[in-house]
Structures are given as structure tokens and as C-alpha cells.
Nucleic acid binder design. Sequence first.
RNA 1: GCUCCCAUCGUCUAGUGGCCCAGGACAUCGCCCUCUCACGGCGAGAACAGGGGUUCGAGUCCCCUUGGGAGUACCA
Length: 465
Amino acid sequence: MSYRTRFAPSPTGFLHIGGARTALFGYLEARRQNGVFVLRIEDTDQERSTDASLQAILDGMAWLGLTHDEGPFYQTKRLDRYREVAEQLLASGKAYRCWCSKERLEQMRNDLEAAGEKPRYDGRCRERTDAEPGVTSVIRFRNPQSGSVVFDDKVRGRIEIQNSELDDLIIWRSDQFPTYNFAVVVDDIDMAITEVIRGEDHINNTPRQINIYQALGRTPPSFGHLPMIHGPDGAKLSKRHGAVSVMQYRDDGYLPDAVINYIARLGWSHGDQEVFSRAELIEKFRIEDVNRAASRFDFDKLAWLNQHYLKSEDPKLVAGHLLWHLEQKGYDLARGPKPEDVVVALRERVKTLKEMAERAACWYVEAIEFDAEAKAKHLTAAARAGLEAVRAQLAAITASDWSPAAVDGALRAAAESLGLGLGKVAPAVRVAVTGTQVSPSIDHTVFLCGQPLALTRIDAAIGMC
RNA sequence: GCUCCCAUCGUCUAGUGGCCCAGGACAUCGCCCUCUCACGGCGAGAACAGGGGUUCGAGUCCCCUUGGGAGUACCA
């Protein structure tokens, strides 16, 4: 039988970082074993499910490159199937109808809780045969009352839970929708899922589900429960930590490869290796190697990885991602330098594409703003001679020869003609061309302006000296 | 409350009884390189939660404590 994993989000919000990692691990396990990665949408909660959320999840997965092989399957389109299985369980006596009111149930829960006991259904309708007139029944699963459920979790090892801790859960609601614990089992059976990878918040549901598999005469798949991801302060990751939604990472200027690499290393490791290509991840990832403890999200490390990818990936590829940010800034791209040249000039000094787009302003915007301190310090009478010499050398470059190397040559020649080092003339040129004291190496900075603009700006600066 | 899960530097982690007076990475701090800012190179500080066992020997196995987390719905 082929290896099959699935990612089964419910469309009640965007794809968050924890969900993305769950999806990634399922995807990786499937890919390594030439298996199938299924996408299933658990939308049986009519109240909370929205189309916007569904789209956000699809967009997030697409951006990360987590492509599924089958699906998306929608639970709301499989209602007849769940009903059929529920009836089957009813017919075989593995489930029963229950007429208890929500009020009675809640009262019972409160009483048990007050008595310091675990809230459980008391089984009042368990052996009942007559119907309660005027009340729409629900269907409850007849959970075994003795013995225990044992399973071997792929990340945690052996887990055992006493059946006496479990109660008869509702599998079919009065609104004629299945409940989660029941629908997942039916789906995972029908979709022939062999390995269930999900968050540890589901660990307590697993024994219940295994009992349903057994009632249905099926062998449960194997399970692997992933630890949680917390915010930098150890609390649950939330908006106040910055980015929760995967798409927010795109907006903040991260490369999908960096995000994938980062979340893969959160809870998983392969010796001392930190950087993994997609292919290496597929080759080396093992669900068994996942850590059991929860981890904290570290934005600094993500930033480091992001810059690593900024520096090591093909500039043309990075430029493709940068383009979006450049457009967000409203730059006139027809006028400025090629984005890939900007990437080469800035990738060693920024952590994100967003930052890169901000720092590229001087090459795309017509008028630069002068930093007062920079101007006062470098555009002085003493700097005038240097600027004029540089201006002359730059003007002498044939337009078609305009390049960082040519600019570098011009600057050095200018400095030499004055008997100075490059360090004596470059700062003023930098301020002249960018308005600030910080920029990439001066040759690239001037080059990216283009010859006409560079000359115009130096002329203007000479006028300010 | 009850049930389940978890516990190595600030953070992510290596470590599966001796190779560990605990290794790598991010972050931090020095130094070098240098036209600014960076990149890079070199170096430093920094951890086995506590207590009992088991063993010739424990970060590694067992128990307890403490501290986190999850579940406890006609949500998923």
C-alpha cells in the first residue's frame, strides 16, 4: 500500500505558522516515500468556516510551495457518507441515539466539575430503546468502558489511555452534521491515510478515534503528534508577536525558502546542519526525529536564514520576489535599475526584501532627501574639489561602459589626481548621490543611479558645498 | 480539579550509559578586514530545572517534586 499523509485544516482563519509546519512535515514524509499528500478541508463547522479563510489557506500553501497531490476534499460534500457510516454503527450497536438536552448535559458537566471529577457523559441513553417525542436525537459512539487504548506515537513513543477516562462522544449532531472525531476517522479511512501528522492538541482525541476505527473493523493509521510553536516570550503565538499568518511573512519580506527552512528546523534537526534545500529536506526529514518539546519562534534566526537565502540564491530569482515589494513602495520601475542589480548591491546589508525595497529608494525616486547631519559633515567646501574631480571622471565614461568597475576606476582616478585615498572622496559622493552616509559600496551605489542621474546629483551637491 | 504530554546555553538544537569538566547555529560582546553600512574571518561569555534512586559510571534509565503545555463541547 502506498504511503499517504494529509493536511486537514479547518477554514476558520488564515494559514498560521504552526499549521504551515504541520503541512510541511506531512508533505515531506509523503515526498520522501514517493507517497501521496492529501489536502482536506474540515469545514463542518458552518458557523466559523469562511471562503476567505479557505482562500487564505490555499494561498499560504501555494506561496510556500507545499503542493498537494489529491484534493482539496471538502467534508461538507461528504455528508451522505458520514451519515451512512453513522447508521452502520447504529445498526451494529456500536452507537446509540441520545435524547439528552444540552441543558441537562451542561448541568451534569457543572456538577461533576464541582465535585472535582472529570466531566463525562453519564450514559443515560446508552441502553434506551424508546424515542423521546419531539426531540431530535444525536448519535453517540458506544465507547468501550474497560481496558485501555495504546498507540505508538511516531514522535512521542508509547501512549496509553484508560477507556474509563473516555466517555460516549457524540458523533452525529442534532443539526445533522458529523462531529470532528467521527468525520476524521471516516475520511482517513476513505482516503486511505497511512500516517496522521497533526498538532499535539489532538493527542487526547487519538484514543477516541482509535476506538472508532476498531468499531468499524479497521486498522488505525500511525500517528505523529507535533509539539506546539510558541512566541518568543513562550506564550502562545499571537498577533502581538508579529507574524502569525504565513502570508504576513511574504509581506514582511521573507523568502518562502527561508520560511520553510526555518520552520523545518523548529522541532526537527539533522545533526548540526542548519541550512537545508527543499531536496535535502525531502531526503533527510523523518517524523521520528521530531522533538517532543514545544519551541519558541525566533525572529532573529529567521532573519539570519532569510539573508542567507538572499545572498545565496540566484539574484534573478530573488529579484522576482523583490519586484512585489518594489511595487508596494510605488516606485517607477521603468526608470530605475534592474531589480537583480539592486539585489546584488543590497543583499549583504539587509535581512528582508522589504528592507531592501526601502533602501533602494534612492535609485527609484526622483528627488532624494538629505540627512542633515550627512550634509553638514560631508558636503563642505573642503569636499568640493573631490566632488568636481569625481564628476569629471564619471562624465568621461562612455555610456555603454557604465558599470560598477568603471565607476570604481573613475573614483580611484579622481582620488589619485588629488593625491588622496578613496576614503577621502567616497563619503561626499555617497552623500551627494543618496543623501545619507550609509549605502552599499560606493561603486555600486553610483552605478545603480545610472550615469545621467549620478552626474545630476553630484552637480547639485557641488552647489551645496 | 481530572487525564495526557513536555523539560540541555537567552533562543533553535546535537547528545540514545563511558568519545561530554556537554558540540553546532542564531543572538550578544571583543578583535581583524574596510570608502560608510554590511558581508566575511577569528575569539569570548553562556545550559544538562531540583531531589532521590539504578549502575563501576547518568545529560542519557526509573521515581518524586517543581515548572510549562494540551485536552476535558451537539469546535476543529
